[in-house]
Write a protein that binds this DNA or RNA. Sequence first.
DNA 1: CGTGTCTGCCC
DNA 2: ATTCTGC
DNA 3: GCAGAATGGGCAGACACG
Length: 583
Amino acid sequence: MLARPAPLTIRGVYSTLRKIALEKGSGSGARRQGLVLSLLRSAREEETRFIVRMLVQNLRVGANWRSVIGALGRAAALHHAKDGLPTKKQLEIAEAATVEAFHLCPSLDVLVPVLLETGPSELGSVCTLRPGVPVKPMLAKAAEGITDALSAMGTTGGAVLGEYKYDGQRAQIHVTNERKVSIFSRNGENRTDSFPDVAEVILEASVGGATSFIVDAELVAIDRANGNRLKAFQELSTRARGAVTSAEITVEVAIFVFDILIADGQPVIEKTLRERRKILQQALPLLAPGRIELARCLEVNTQAKANISVGQIPAIDNRASVQPKDETAEAVLQEFLLTSFADGAEGLMLKQLDAGGYQPSKRSESWLKVKRDYCEGLRDSLDLVPIGGWHGNGRKAKWLSPFLLAAWDPVNEEFQSVCRVMSGFTDQFYAEATERLGRRHRIDGPKPYYVTGECCSVWFEPAEVWEIRGADLTISPVHKAARGHLHPEKGVSMRFPRFIRVRDDKRPQDASTPEVIVDLFNRQTRKVDTRGAPAAQALGNLNSSSGAAQEDLVEDGAEDDGESAFEDDSDSEPGDEACGQET
DNA sequence: CGTGTCTGCCC
DNA sequence: ATTCTGC
DNA sequence: GCAGAATGGGCAGACACG
């Protein structure tokens, strides 16, 4: 027997991880394997699990950044305790202060020296908002509709701002006193180099306004040649990720600003939204349609029918920005919501105007988002057939997850995949579905009439129908629903799919069809332009698009009659080897 | 050098 | 992003 | 009510491999 390897040390593991990360070039795969193997050979007991999880996925072992930062604060408090151990209360204060400091100034380079040298008590004076260091952005909670949102805002209610929720990419834009611009993503990534156009525009817009500032905004792909129509998120995401020059930019964006955190060096996050909006306007006096605008918005009074005069909240154009007299806030916002859809936005944000400040990193009740797919009566769903799945990981290891869902094409008599789904299932449902589909309806390989770019590790017979809801439909290189209708090979898929319920009343041949899917796709206001695609034969409605005044549609429920005879032919294929193997 | 696969980041 | 579960 | 976990579509870019 060989000698047991030396135990792992933190330094040793760290250095091996670095080696793995830096390894590249021909044969790097094998060398990486060797390094992983050496780690695992030295691991003892629980260490194996930590190492494996660290390597396969972001160390999901019950400790995220927030917990680690909090623990760091506690450790610092212990380290600096003067007389005896700190009380539980003192530790909690240290933790909260550290987490708070990290939200305002999420930089370990700033945080750790302060903790080491002086302890958590001094964090407040050092870890402050500062242009150049990204702040954790404030987030919103989902509301199931205008009514729901207004009641969630509760009695503090009064003035509420309804604001377009644009379907783009969050951007926190910083300008320093030296007029140096930095642009951060929602996750605090520095994206400055991929948005030189945004940097230019923000500098121009702030001439005569604030010198240094931090504003919160959404960047949206825009069609300048076509009345500044908003484009789909999918278009935005084709922009280069790395450094580009303005001349190389292929997808133009508009900046929709909606908040401000610092103006001329002064933090304004403690001020109310109404005040911040005013400051925002002053900071950016030179707005330009299609390039930089204030997020379109509308102020309402929730206490009663509007009979007060409001109107300090600016809209970018001459649309009414104020609730008309004699209409309820609810009715006005409901209409505004529909207008936002027609304009190509995702829905509305509802924000309390006169209560509370900007709360970095909080998913607060004072910001609520209302999207089409949250709203009863506005949302669409598809009825799809589970045709395969994979073995789950972590807490879902004993079940199948995700599942692959397909639409039924009665013309070609095939099931065409639409999306994977892993959200919306209860644990109990997983257990039952794993048993039902993974055992009783399991087959050795995909049926010849299954069409998908996916390779499931487990395949089922078409046995049942599930209602699946999503935000909108996309053009997919992987999924094949309605292929040939909008694009020669690409199919249609769904953004943010989740399971709603089993449709006991439907058989697989009653599932949603290409016809339904193409129709839903074409009725979307924002969608990827497929017209350039060669030979998209289009069912004569390729050009319907735009406008969408008559938005409202509820698919689901009584659909077509799906008469096509889909027989369970007996030739169940053996497994197909073309598929890569599962994990 | 071209293709296929994986990663990391948006939502 | 969305959702469910456990504290 | 919050934290944590498990994963959705889809893109560009990095990389390995032939």
